[in-house]
Amino acid sequence: MTLDLASHDIDVMRYVANADVVHVYAQTQQQIHSTHEDLLLGLLSFKNGAIGVLDVNWLTPTKVRELSVTGEKGMFLVNYLTQEVLFYENDYTPTDWDAMRSLKGVSEGTMTRLKVQKAEPLQLEYKDVLAALTNDVLPTVSGEDGIAVLQVVQQLAASKQALSGSALPDQPIQLTAMEVEI
């Protein structure tokens, strides 16, 4: 599942962050499949300080394919299924109350739906590769990008700690997770 689904999210995160992953952490669960994980929660640290969160699974009863990118000025929300892009602006409200002036927070501001040209993603991918071969140029996603994504997937697999589906014991347990430097 990590290789099948998470690899696409990792590729997008690397593209958006415009940086390589330098550190990963993962937790997985295996509930319905006998040979591999069904759920992955992962944390990726990028060379430029950006952080990515993976929440990938085969357990939800409906397809959820979303990407959110959060920054100081707001959040972009991309829905891959409907091919919609929304921007939620952070709204900073000034206050005259001295005791609250030192606290900074955000509230929901204006939501903007961005116009995007809808297209079939696999068809665009094929066209990009064919254009690269025809015009002797590099495709949008290079072989090096693919190798970098596979390295992150391998590191997530090395980092993962499978949690059993059994009931919690009466005594507290200590969970440890392995962190991996890339």
Score class of each variant (00 low, 15 high):
35 T>S: 11
116 V>H: 12
55 D>Q: 08
35 T>D: 15
113 R>M: 07
48 N>T: 03
65 R>Q: 13
137 V>A: 12
51 I>F: 00
155 Q>E: 12
57 N>I: 00
67 L>S: 00
65 R>Y: 02
99 A>R: 09
140 T>C: 12
69 V>N: 06
94 P>S: 14
14 R>T: 01
28 T>S: 02
4 D>F: 06
82 T>W: 05
155 Q>D: 15
38 D>K: 01
154 Q>C: 02
67 L>A: 02
117 Q>L: 14
59 L>E: 06
74 G>A: 06
123 Q>I: 14
115 K>I: 14
11 D>V: 06
30 Q>N: 03
116 V>F: 07
98 D>E: 11
13 M>Y: 04
67 L>M: 12
163 L>E: 00
3 L>N: 14
169 P>C: 00
112 T>S: 14
162 A>Y: 08
146 G>C: 04
132 A>W: 04
86 L>D: 11
114 L>V: 13
115 K>C: 12
171 Q>C: 05
166 S>K: 05
60 T>R: 13
169 P>W: 08
174 Q>P: 02
115 K>T: 15
170 D>S: 13
48 N>G: 10
129 V>H: 07
74 G>I: 02
134 T>L: 08
132 A>Y: 03
60 T>K: 08
92 Y>H: 07
70 T>I: 14
114 L>R: 09
59 L>D: 07
121 P>K: 00
145 D>R: 02
156 L>H: 00
26 A>P: 07
143 G>K: 10
40 L>D: 08
163 L>G: 01
61 P>H: 13
114 L>A: 07
41 L>T: 10
28 T>Q: 02
90 N>D: 11
80 Y>F: 04
85 V>H: 10
110 T>M: 13
28 T>P: 09
23 H>M: 05
151 Q>E: 00
5 L>K: 11
30 Q>F: 06
57 N>H: 12
13 M>F: 03
1 M>N: 05
177 A>C: 15
78 V>G: 01
102 S>C: 12
120 E>R: 01
34 S>V: 03
42 G>F: 01
152 V>T: 03
51 I>T: 12
152 V>I: 06
75 M>V: 14
72 E>H: 09
162 A>D: 05
104 K>Q: 05
149 V>N: 01
14 R>M: 11
168 L>E: 05
79 N>Y: 08
31 Q>A: 10
18 N>A: 11
75 M>W: 01
51 I>G: 01
20 D>R: 06
118 K>V: 04
143 G>V: 04
77 L>F: 07
27 Q>W: 04
138 L>C: 09
85 V>K: 03
78 V>Y: 12
99 A>F: 04
63 K>T: 14
158 A>P: 02
71 G>R: 05
152 V>K: 07
113 R>K: 15
87 F>G: 02
39 L>T: 05
19 A>Y: 07
141 V>E: 14
41 L>E: 09
148 A>P: 04
37 E>I: 11
172 P>W: 02
12 V>W: 01
10 I>K: 00
143 G>T: 14
154 Q>K: 11
19 A>G: 04
175 L>M: 10
92 Y>Q: 06
